[in-house]
Design a protein around this nucleic acid. Structure first.
Lengths: 189, 189, 189, 189
DNA sequence: AATGAATGAGTCTTCATTCAT
DNA sequence: GATGAATGAAGACTCATTCAT
């Protein structure tokens, strides 16, 4: 297990730095000082490794999202804030994984792309549902299209993997506040 | 020019479909029925072609942005709406170019990445400036951080290259309205 | 080792026959019936292989020259004869290597050319030193320029890679005698 | 004529600097600011150009050698000195041509290699004949092998294209003196 | 005399993957 | 569990040459 994890962690670092294609198996195993044989003992292919990384990321995200959704004592606006926190925090804390997740989907097999896409779509639909619920309950403006708003929210948050630097002058907590404020003001009644 | 253009257009289509790395020169020239030599007659390298595409895209975007900025009879809010329109329209009309532009920067040489990044940053700074101006003139809320808001706006709009389909049920014009409404409501006084 | 050696030996034969540039990796691996991958498993580049050949040749030459130099019971004239023997024998016995060594230096990288040049210059300087010693000790004529004479000696011997055929009517041993006789008579007191 | 000459001269410079193979037609025409078409208007192929250079060089050398040979008032030793002068002077004055001549023969077609080789062999045989004549007339030692001595003389002189720098501390005239002295002392009675 | 667009064969090199040990 | 030798398919790029104008 230790070795499999070591390979995965090193791969994430290299993938985010140089890209999936530009990183060779050789690069990965050299970095942790084992040989190619070892890699293939743990992973059936390079794509398999990438799939593992993707599935871990989205699965973890989804499970935490579901925990938020099931909180019955939260308003929809609070839930949206929590989801924004979830996404920003991941980008801040697990930047490399996030970047690999957002950038390298294309290198999965068609079948695996499908699997990951479905989970990502599920994540988005959860947001859409919360927005719709918010509309229904009068927390959010009636005329909104819940689907488009969900895309908008994901845009604001996810885009930050492109530029956000955790050690910059804005802390993750501040960014969460800025974005949830902007978004909620933008859609609240 | 005809041939060089043909190569560029075909490349954009293939790059957005399969990715820069997954598209071979062979793929490109096969599609337009010329030979590899022809490609290298017009481009010094595959990367050079990618740079051309990037530079054309951002240059065109910047020039139109500057035209908007120089309109003295527009409020800052109107200017922001126009910039949102600019971005969404490009994604809607020139989807393939947009996708290549947003996805494949990494395959440029370090030097070229720098050039493109500077132009992209310039584009963002223009937005930041408009937001700041809006704040100063009382159109937008005083407590906003203009820089973070500019990233947020770009997130909402640019992210749509990931999902927006011009022939879907939402027209570009509607999307522009939805997003500018959400954003402006979110930040206006 | 076996395979690496096999590649090297075959390469020497092909390089001397067709020249470094005219010999493709394909040619080499085809001749020993392995695949291109195998070549690159053992050598990082074609140039690397050429460097290996060069370095082996000059290193071997230098080490034998140093053994001659250190013989304290030899006159300088005897030492010169031994060095002429060394050079002619190598050309006679290891003709292909010799020809590659003398002809293909230019295809090394600048850095490697420098390394090899220094070793070749060291070899020549050793000759120059022997000549100078011979002058000092009265074995050779006082008015000689040791540097030019060393170039002359190398010219006579090295040039033979251009024409000498070991299976011709003159044996290596005879040639050594002819040349050392001509040279030593030409410079002795 | 002017253009053909310009191409030839530029080629010689580039060939000696980078080698025949490493110099592309593109390189040549770019240097004199014409286009590839122009090259092919004057030369039927790259090899043809190389052949022209070779043939000019050896033809010129041979004609001057023949003039020396026909001088009836010269001793054989004087003739040898004159031939040594011929060779060294060419290397000193026309270094680039000389280097191309000695290094790039291999890139000629088999047929052209044959032609050039014959002329070079003719040049060598002329020397052999002079040496033999010198032996017969008692100017040179009886026991010499005229053929091997001719190779030795060519070695001493030709080798200098490898190292001789006309602007170094030894003038061409001095080098000629040093070498003819060494050689003639080495073989004279 | 000279141009410039186009060709196509060939080159070095990379790399994911396999497999016997 | 892990190694290292070997594969082979594919990729970017070069270049002498042709030819219509």
């Amino acid at each position: 297990m230790a070795m499999k994890d070591k390979i995965t962690q090193q791969s994430i670092l290299l993938f985010q730095e140089k890209g999936f294609n530009q990183t060779s198996i050789q690069d990965i195993v050299r970095a942790i000082e084992v040989t190619k044989g070892t890699f293939y003992y743990y992973f059936s292919s390079k794509e398999q490794l990438l799939m593992d990384i993707h599935d871990d990321y989205i699965t973890h995200l989804l499970s935490r999202q579901e925990r938020i959704i099931s909180k019955t004592n939260m308003t929809q606006k609070e839930k949206l804030t929590e989801i924004i926190r979830l996404l920003i925090m991941d980008i801040a804390d697990k930047g490399p994984s996030a970047r690999v997740f957002f950038r390298e989907v294309r290198h999965l097999t068609d079948e695996n792309i499908e699997t990951i896409s479905q989970k990502r779509e599920k994540f988005r639909l959860h947001i859409e549902k919360i927005v719709q619920e918010g509309i229904n309950q009068g927390e959010l403006r009636k005329e909104l299209r819940a689907d488009m708003i969900s895309f908008g929210i994901l845009g604001v948050t996810n885009w930050s993997y492109n530029w956000y630097k955790p050690d910059g002058e804005v802390s993750a907590e501040e960014l969460i506040k800025i974005y949830s404020d902007m978004i909620l003001t933008g859609i609240a009644t």
